[in-house]
Design a protein around this nucleic acid. Structure first.
Length: 467
DNA sequence: CTATGGCACGGATT
DNA sequence: AATCCGTGCCATAG
């Protein structure tokens, strides 16, 4: 018995590692599915009945008291309170509601995928036949919300006059996000202009610039633009400013807080966060509560009945059952490992980035995953897995990817932005470099220029004339 | 000559 | 191994 145990254990360790890593990289949502699967397929696994806290209705683990309600009333330390909280009750219902509302009016169509979201808006204006075409068009959007097929093809396929297809397309384009379903960024922006023109005044030449000369804009050939349009550079500046502030060439790209989503431009829809962070008792001066969401609503354990049944089992069933048992054991261990890692990670990160969490972006301390890994004595790839694919809800209700805690350029960029917004008169890039140097940030002039461009801020000489 | 954008390279990060 | 980021160099505009 002992021998066989050893034998099984050895190959297990590698399997164990592999499993832990895959589980680590899953988000709560994904993991909870995984657990459901495992529960359904493995008779050795059992979900223990849950106990809920009488005060806040949170599901409790084991015999531990409720971590929130039993927390001391007066707190005077900087360390965050950390605890794990089970899935189903992880956010009090009202809070979750609010969060959804927030997501809808401030961020982007969340909840469902883009095609469905758009389709629901327009379905009522269309005949059933038109709906078919619309649905077909919507399935051919790329990640940016642009249409990837030629309407002509669609027209042929559905034996419908092109004009009719185009009409359906334009219905789509007028839905939220405005411009979705266009064939090109230019087209999308033109649609957005149309829609904006109902309520706003559009600067002269804006339309012409978008229509004919958008290439020049992206190449920043502003003076050239003025020449082509035969107008003053001031008009061009105004138009360009309007464009960069109001138009979005890629309708589907959500503006998450600031303009930035290159790493995960594909999915901006966040459902359940993996971790919640909020100040204790909602007082910002209190320590932060870090609530790591568990994918379970109870305790996972080996079914004792199953264990004893093995002994009396027929020999042919025995092996099968034993492997089930091993798998179950492994699974539980892995999940515990996962939680342990995440908890330790969050503890570190939250302590380090407290200012960022409560005060906002510019207080983000640049940290690399490697550094944290070293401090926690784990391999950096472990951290990578733990960080990827997960989201955190901040005290201000905003849900951001956990990876944003590790951005190493963002802080410089925000400082640049701040300097420019506080400037009394336009500063050239070189001058900004000097100011940055005084703050202890040493960067090249070229770098400042890049950040400025990323923020869509015009060059100094252009900023000067526009109010 | 100064201020900036484009291109592309090397080193760090993932 | 693949990517991202800061930079240096050069071209261009004024």
């Amino acid at each position: 018995m002992l021998q066989s145990h050893q034998q099984i254990l050895k190959p297990l360790t590698t399997a164990h590692l592999a499993r832990t890593m895959t589980l680590l990289s899953l988000s709560v949502e994904e993991l909870s599915q995984e657990i459901d699967n495992e529960l359904a397929n493995n008779p050795a696994l059992e979900l223990l009945e849950q106990r809920t806290c009488p005060h806040c209705r949170r599901v409790l683990l084991g015999s531990a008291p409720c971590p929130v309600c039993s927390a001391p009333k007066t707190l005077d330390y900087d360390e965050p309170i950390i605890f794990v909280s089970p899935r189903d009750d992880f956010v009090p219902h009202d809070m979750w509601r609010e969060n959804q509302d927030y997501a809808e009016d401030d961020i982007s169509p969340a909840e469902e995928d883009l095609p469905t979201y758009v389709f629901r808006q327009i379905a009522t204006e269309l005949t059933p036949e038109e709906q078919k075409v619309a649905a077909y068009l919507l399935t051919h959007l790329n990640d940016d919300g642009l249409l990837m097929i030629d309407p002509i093809e669609v027209a042929q396929y559905y034996h419908m006059p092109i004009s009719h297809v185009l009409q359906i397309q334009s219905t789509i384009q007028r839905a939220e996000p405005v411009g979705v379903g266009s064939r090109s960024p230019e087209e999308a922006m033109l649609i957005q202009l149309d829609s904006l023109s109902e309520g706003y005044e559009i600067p002269p030449y804006t339309r012409e610039i978008v229509k004919e000369n958008i290439g020049l804009v992206s190449r920043k050939q502003y003076p050239m633009l003025a020449k082509v349009l035969n107008t003053t550079s001031k008009n061009v500046q105004i138009a360009i400013r309007f464009i960069s502030e109001n138009l979005n060439p890629y309708p589907a790209r959500a503006h998450w807080g600031d303009v930035r989503s290159p790493t995960q431009s594909k999915s901006f829809v966040y459902h359940q966060p993996d971790v919640l962070i909020y100040p204790y008792n909602n007082d910002i001066n209190n320590p932060l509560v870090i609530e790591v969401i568990l994918p379970l609503s109870g305790t996972l354990r080996i079914n004792p009945m199953f264990k004893s049944a093995i002994r009396n089992a027929e020999s042919d069933k025995r092996d099968e059952w034993r492997s089930d048992l091993e798998k179950a054991n492994l699974f539980i261990k892995c999940i515990q490992q996962r939680n342990y890692t995440i908890v330790r990670l969050m503890e570190k990160v939250a302590t380090l980035q407290r200012d960022f969490i409560v005060n906002g972006e510019k207080y983000l301390i640049p940290v690399t995953r490697a550094k944290i890994a070293k401090e926690l004595n784990v391999h950096e790839s472990t951290i990578s897995r733990a960080v990827g694919n997960k989201t955190v809800q901040l005290p201000n209700r905003r849900i951001i990817p956990l990876s944003s805690f590790f951005d190493r350029s963002l802080n410089i960029r925000t400082i640049v932005k701040e300097i420019i917004s506080n400037e009394s008169e336009p500063l050239s890039d070189a001058e900004i470099v000097d100011l940055l140097g005084e703050k202890g940030v040493n960067v090249a002039r070229r770098t400042v220029a890049k950040y400025r461009a990323m923020e869509g801020i015009l060059p100094a000489y252009m900023r000067s004339t526009v109010a």
